[in-house]
């Protein structure tokens, strides 16, 4: 990797201060994407601001109808949290199936969501549960947050402090992993909430997306039978040696039905 200045601030304010005015500075949470990118010399940041020392960013609490997860909370902590398991078991399940134990004990929710890798799992839950992303400056609704391939609504130097997930009546996440990387080739998060039914798909396209036809059908009848004939167009979906766009489109249907069945269990 190339040389860079390394910082380990103790507060959000200090972190924001360190990033300010440095267009080539990068914030690092778990480093699960950034470190390999640095090692392959694919990125050359002037500064790396390690958020690992910012204690206020980590932790899980239940506030009324919401589970609020701090930006620096590790996947393993979400997966094993009694509060998360009780309030939104699908979210704990999702976190427990990200990567491998090493990744789960280093990677964070804020890092994953801010990076918006098209094959990441968490965007499925954020959109599927209609979560709210809180940053150091504002609150952003899930539907407004994810903008495209590795693109989000975050401004330069803006940090995710927490993500608030409303509890769901029923929810489940089904992932079909890429055989090699085990990232989501297709991941479907289905939730039935007070605000309606949501079907969020990650992995299949350049960015997480909702499937309105499925949501409408499931709002009328929350069963896998209700969506069995809904075909997802392959246009615009990802295609690689592990899955053609047609295969991914097909898997969206399969994983959505399995998610609905799991949610109904």
């Amino acid at each position: 990797m190339y040389d860079f200045a390394y910082h380990r601030p103790k507060s959000v304010a200090d972190a924001v201060g360190l990033l300010k005015g440095k267009p080539e500075a990068r914030a690092m949470s778990g480093g699960m994407t950034l470190i390999p990118t640095l090692k392959q010399r694919l990125a050359r940041p002037s500064d790396v601001v390690d958020l690992g020392g910012v204690k206020e960013l980590a932790g899980i609490k239940v506030e009324g109808n919401n589970v609020v997860v701090g930006g620096m909370t590790r996947h393993a902590d979400v997966a094993t949290s009694a509060e998360v398991k009780a309030a939104i078991p699908a979210l704990a399940h999702l976190a427990g199936h990200i990567g491998d134990p090493q990744v789960r004990n280093r990677g964070t929710i804020g890092g994953s969501v801010a990076n918006n890798d098209p094959a990441a799992d968490y965007p499925g839950a954020v959109v599927g549960l209609n979560a709210t992303v809180t940053t150091n400056t504002r609150k952003i609704a899930a539907d407004d947050f994810f903008k495209g391939l590795f693109e989000t609504a975050l401004a330069d130097g803006e940090l995710i402090t927490s993500i608030s997930f409303p509890k769901a009546e029923k929810a489940a996440y089904m992932k079909f992993p890429n055989p090699a990387s085990r990232y989501a080739m297709v991941g479907v998060f289905v939730a039935k909430t007070a605000g309606g039914v949501r079907v969020a798909v990650t992995g299949a396209g350049p960015c997480v997306f909702r499937v309105k036809a499925m949501e409408d059908a499931l709002a009328k009848n929350f069963s896998s039978a209700a969506i069995k004939d809904i075909k997802i167009p392959a246009d615009g979906l990802n295609s690689d040696i592990h899955g053609s766009a047609e295969y991914r489109a097909h898997l969206v249907g399969v994983m959505a039905r399995r998610a609905v069945d799991a949610a109904n269990k």
Partner: peptide
Amino acid sequence: LLEAAVYDKATGQLISGSYMDYTM
């Protein structure tokens, strides 16, 4: 079931050049 070394037929690049794409 899993492993395949894949070269791009047009460019000759090794597509399965890491564990992200080569399935062990």
